[in-house]
Amino acid sequence: MKLELPCWTSHHNLLLYSFLFFCYENDFAFNVVFNNRLATGGGIIYLDDDKTIFLDYSDDIKFIDDPKRYSFYFKRSLTFENYSGNIYPLNFQVNYSYKAINLLMKFKLNDLMNSRNRIEIIRAMDYFNLFTNLSHNAMDARSFPTSVTDNNGKIIFHTRLWNPENHIDLEEKKRREIQNQFRIEACRIIKRNFENSSVGIFPDELSARIAPDLLLNVKRISKKEYFKSLRNADIGIADDGLKDTPGWKIGECLLFGKAVITTPLNVVVEDFKEYVNYEKLSARDSYLELPEKIESLIVGKRYCEMGQKNLEWSENFLHPKNYFKRILAITKSKTC
């Protein structure tokens, strides 16, 4: 079995570290090669029976390669209308690591010297997070919670704004305006109605101008600090990220065993059920519904029950002990 990547980026960490875990667990050779002709957000698994699996980690609902070229095609942002034939969902995306130094030791010298891999190599070497950009800090899978904690219904929503003027496409400008409005008003309505909450917006020029009342403390904006805050919360608020598809935030909430309230999910997520794993707002801009949704989770401490379900879901679909194994299990079942 071989894994082929265009380069090593943060979008590949979920796959790469899961593959490392799988190889350790099954005493397989760690066989990773780089091919810069592959689409940047993709990867290919070559099985020993000559079958091929393409992995599409793009934010966009568009395919970055032709599914007909492969035995199986797994896509992160998979719409329901495209869920057919040899196409399967990759579910949510998160950024984590597992024995990062050991991973570095598996690579050949020319892979370590590859300029396209440089950023993630530096991050993997920076074990104590002293030098690298902590806004893209990867969670160490060995530190994931193994049980749900009760923090008296604390709500968390740390987010950022995207400047509409930084994009030339009119449709994208409008999408960013709607996204920014939701994020600002969601923070304000939660802050106004729930004292036991941690909400705010990443401080930059745009947020300082249009939402100065919501700026996060500059000392708390790193991923490392965010994970501390997430660990001490119970209910995570999530909304669509780029291209109106789920970002990393919702997957992080699940791995930490938190209840989730989210804007509508427009992509396929396997065995992820409304009212069981998440509460759904009726529309992208329905921030006014948040207080009622939050109260419904606080009554009877239902957030604990949902948090437990999400911890179990994340172990089955996101944790490195099962992520790579799940992909292979699907291909095996469809081959038999």
Rank of each mutant, 00 (worst) to 15 (best):
Q308C: 06
V267Y: 00
K154C: 07
L103E: 01
D111F: 08
L38T: 11
K191T: 04
T245V: 05
L288W: 13
Y98V: 07
G300R: 12
R116F: 03
F72I: 03
F54E: 00
E289P: 06
E279Q: 12
K106A: 10
C336K: 06
N163K: 03
A124V: 04
D50Y: 13
E305N: 14
K68F: 06
D60Y: 03
F182D: 00
K191F: 09
L242S: 12
G85T: 07
N114T: 08
G42P: 06
N277M: 05
L255Q: 07
Y24V: 13
I119F: 12
L216I: 09
V299L: 10
T245N: 07
A124Y: 06
K309E: 14
Y303V: 10
N193R: 05
R160M: 05
T149Q: 13
E25I: 04
F128G: 05
E270T: 14
F28M: 14
K258N: 10
G307M: 05
N36T: 12
A329F: 04
K273C: 08
D204I: 10
F128Q: 14
R69D: 12
S296D: 08
I119Y: 15
V268A: 05
T331A: 05
T79E: 09
G43A: 15
Y96T: 13
S115Y: 08
F28A: 14
M139D: 06
V269R: 01
I44L: 09
T159I: 04
F324N: 00
E177P: 02
I53W: 13
R220F: 10
N266S: 11
Y275M: 08
E312R: 14
P320K: 00
C253V: 04
E171I: 12
F324M: 00
I101P: 02
Y17A: 02
A283C: 11
L109T: 08
T40V: 14
G236P: 00
Y287F: 14
L242C: 02
Y17T: 10
D240W: 02
E25D: 14
I121A: 09
D240Q: 11
K154A: 11
I44C: 07
P67Y: 04
K224G: 03
Y57R: 09
R175K: 10
P320T: 01
N266A: 12
E289F: 12
M105D: 14
D126E: 13
S71H: 11
